[in-house]
């Protein structure tokens, strides 16, 4: 399941790209490609477990 804070945009945070790229609406920045696999839930990765940004945003930042 994809992170609800993931969007695909071609501009934002001072950048303009030719194609849409993963964008984190919590941080308002483009997402690193490896982190985007967490956002999209690829390879059994899961934002609720694996992403500290999501966890902190929803108030579950502690281990």
């Amino acid at each position: 399941m994809s992170c609800p804070y993931l969007e695909y945009r071609s501009s934002g945070d001072g950048y303009e790209f030719d194609t849409e790229r993963p964008f984190c609406t919590v941080l308002e920045t483009f997402v690193q490609p490896m982190r985007a696999d967490i956002c999209t839930g690829r390879y059994a990765l899961e934002h609720g477990r694996d992403c500290e940004i999501y966890r902190e945003h929803v108030g579950d930042g502690s281990d």
Binding site: F17, E20, R21, P22, P33, A36, D37, T40
Partner: peptide, 8 residues
């Protein structure tokens, strides 16, 4: 290699 979105 990457996807068209720049992702892995």
């Amino acid at each position: 290699a990457r996807r068209d979105t720049g992702e892995r």
